[in-house]
């Protein structure tokens, strides 16, 4: 019953997620798609960096920056 990362990712498509980058910035949104490089597309992405926040309609996050949640 172990879930490997690729399984996990296909399971959580469509759900609300938070993506945390190496630089500490977080992006929250609905996970629309993901690929083998861990590139991610979030719908209604919200950037949370400390106290400030900012919203994007759709947002593509390049895989190498992601750390995850």
């Amino acid at each position: 019953m172990s879930t490997d990362p690729s399984h996990f990712l296909s399971n959580i498509i469509g759900s609300s997620v938070t993506v945390k980058l190496h630089n500490g910035v977080k992006y929250a949104g609905v996970l629309q798609s993901i690929d083998g490089f861990m590139n991610v597309v979030l719908q209604n992405g919200t950037e949370v960096a400390g106290e400030s926040s900012r919203t994007y309609g759709d947002v593509f996050i390049r895989g190498n920056n992601g750390m995850y949640e």
């Binding site: 172990s2 490997d4 990362p5 690729s6 399984h7 996990f8 861990m38």
Partner: peptide, 11 residues
């Protein structure tokens, strides 16, 4: 630990 792959990505 729930799972991992060859890159040591972990769930």
């Amino acid at each position: 630990l729930v799972g991992f792959d060859d890159f040591v990505n972990m769930v």
